[in-house]
């Protein structure tokens, strides 16, 4: 009886030792090559491949939620160069990037909303396209926030609701 137990335990031990711990399974994960495969990146997409067009989105109505989303996205993607207040003196500009124009110049105050949307989508001058980082809805949110920044530059204390004035002083 004892011997049989010993054999069971021993064979179990051998069987378990032979187990792969299943850490590598034949499934593909982002950025992962199939197990044992050699990286052979295509240098460029094959010929006759056309980029998937973005679906245009309807211009969203301006709400507080949209502005807050716009502020958040602006601070992530735009503020490094344009600065949080939009004067074009962000940290990356301080480190040598060509200075973008301030949002408060007449040309940009008068520019249509579509202009800002298009610049985010396609880039402008030294600015690269942000189409892969900022989705279409977020671009409109950022445009709304830029408009709010521009409006804030000429705001008077009388424009602020009386119960909020305290927070500015």
């Amino acid at each position: 009886m004892k011997l049989r137990h010993a054999i069971t335990v021993a064979s179990l031990a051998v069987a378990l030792a032979a187990c792969d711990n299943m850490a590598n399974q034949p499934k593909r994960l982002p950025y992962e090559l199939p197990y044992g495969a050699q990286a052979n990146w295509p240098a460029l997409p094959p010929q006759h491949i056309i980029a998937h067009d973005e679906k245009p989105v309807a211009v969203p109505p301006v709400t507080m939620a949209l502005l807050e989303r716009g502020q958040q996205r602006f601070d992530i993607y735009c503020a490094p160069c344009h600065s949080k207040i939009g004067d074009g003196r962000g940290m990356i500009v301080q480190r040598g990037f060509p200075q973008p124009p301030s949002y408060y110049i007449a040309r940009l105050r008068d520019a249509p909303n579509q202009h800002f949307y298009d610049v985010i989508t396609h880039g402008y001058g030294a600015m690269y396209s942000y189409a892969d980082r900022v989705g279409a809805e977020d671009r409109w949110a950022i445009v709304a926030y830029i408009r709010a920044l521009q409006a804030s530059a000429s705001a008077q204390i009388a424009d602020v609701p009386p119960d909020k004035r305290q927070t500015l002083q």
Binding site: P30, P80, R95, F97, P98, M127, Y128, D132
Partner: peptide
């Protein structure tokens, strides 16, 4: 997404095309 995303080289070059 499940994956945080490793930036494409385009993202690095957004600044490093100038700096």
């Amino acid at each position: 997404s499940q994956n945080a995303g490793i930036p494409p080289i385009h993202t690095c070059m957004t600044c490093h095309s100038q700096i």
